[in-house]
């Protein structure tokens, strides 16, 4: 096929034989970010909205990006007509109804929302929750894919946090709330079932990790799965019994709760979750690593995990917005 058509935001560009998508778009004066033109810098990453892009155009991209049909325009010699996008699509919201609300600890509420339409998400992704007046916040889905219409969230009350305060104080069972399409790249794909997994979360960073762990165990992940959940003190932890029960049930799942500021009771480790994890597992070569929670923890742990041998392709992270400027 000599010519292919590239549709970008209702603008059609013809791509000639032997021409990359980037070359065609630039020739057509389309404003698209790019730099190295050789697949290294990834500035020109775009996403196909219809057909899967050619595999050669996804070289070097993370598996989760490939799965969502992202590709590099500078490497792509299209094999058929494609509809592509540069950024995020307009968000689609479905109606949700609060069906349960309970406290996990003094500062975190477990919210269960029944969605009108089943959502197609991966364990570990987040959605945007929108209040009737338009106030929006992102929250991670804390359950596995088994319940696609019933989503659970861990909502931590932040000092001065408008949305979290409202959820804690005013949102009631039976109230409705808008739920966006699932987003984010920190999620579990059931491939490489024998790969060792390390998951580190602080505070409500446990939410996506719990979803990932349940998903992995339900899918029959056979490699060891290590969870380190940290907080300043024991009050900030939750689901200790649930995670211990899970560790009893599954031989390959290991759980270490950690507290950084106060004295650790029996069965709880003393120190920051990421420090303890890196001491216990000094060699992360070949491991897949998930990091969720306080941005400082996520950044430090990402660097440590990489220096300890994990490949960047295997490190998935989600830094949460926090009101508190201090770590843990």
């Amino acid at each position: 096929m000599a010519l292919t058509k590239i549709l970008l935001d209702e603008h059609e560009t013809v791509c000639h034989e032997g021409e990359t998508v980037l070359e065609a778009l630039l020739r057509d004066n389309v404003d698209i970010p790019f730099s190295c033109k050789q697949g290294a810098c990834q500035s020109c990453m775009v996403r196909s909205l219809d057909v899967p892009p050619p595999a050669h155009a996804q070289k070097g991209l993370k598996d989760v990006l490939c799965k969502q049909n992202h590709f590099l325009a500078c490497l792509c010699y299209p094999e058929q007509d494609m509809s592509i996008t540069l950024g995020h699509q307009p968000e689609y919201f479905t109606e949700g109804t609060v069906i349960a609300k309970e406290l996990l600890n003094p500062e975190t509420v477990l919210l269960t929302i029944q969605c009108k339409d089943a959502l197609d998400y991966y364990a570990g992704q987040f959605v945007n929750l929108k209040r009737a007046d338009g106030l929006i916040r992102s929250y991670s889905i804390s359950n596995s894919r088994r319940h696609a219409e019933k989503l659970t969230f861990h909502i931590r009350r932040l000092a001065g946090g408008k949305f979290s305060e409202w959820v804690h104080q005013e949102l009631n069972i039976g109230d409705t709330i808008a739920v966006s399409d699932p987003q984010g790249l920190c999620y579990y794909l059931p491939d490489k079932m024998e790969q060792s997994l390390l998951l580190i979360g602080t505070g409500s960073g446990l939410a996506p990790l719990a979803g990932i762990i349940h998903e992995a165990l339900e899918e029959g992940h056979s490699g060891p799965i290590h969870l380190y959940h940290g907080s300043r003190d024991v009050d900030g932890l939750y689901w200790i019994d649930e995670m211990r029960e899970l560790a009893d049930k599954y031989e390959n799942f290991h759980y270490t709760p950690c507290v950084s500021r106060s004295d650790a009771p029996e069965g709880v480790a003393q120190g920051r979750a990421n420090d303890i994890a890196m001491v216990n597992i000094p060699d992360l070569k070949g491991w897949r690593v998930y990091l969720c929670g306080h941005p400082d923890m996520v950044n430090q742990a990402k660097r440590m995990a990489y220096l300890n041998g994990a490949s960047l392709q295997d490190i998935y992270s989600d830094a949460f917005h926090v009101a508190s400027p201090t770590l843990d």
Binding site: S35, C36, A40, Q42, G60, K62, K302, R303, L312
Partner: peptide, 11 residues
């Protein structure tokens, strides 16, 4: 951003 940095180092 570590991924972007690794890509720059590759270039």
């Amino acid at each position: 951003d570590m991924e972007q940095q690794a890509a720059k180092q590759k270039a």
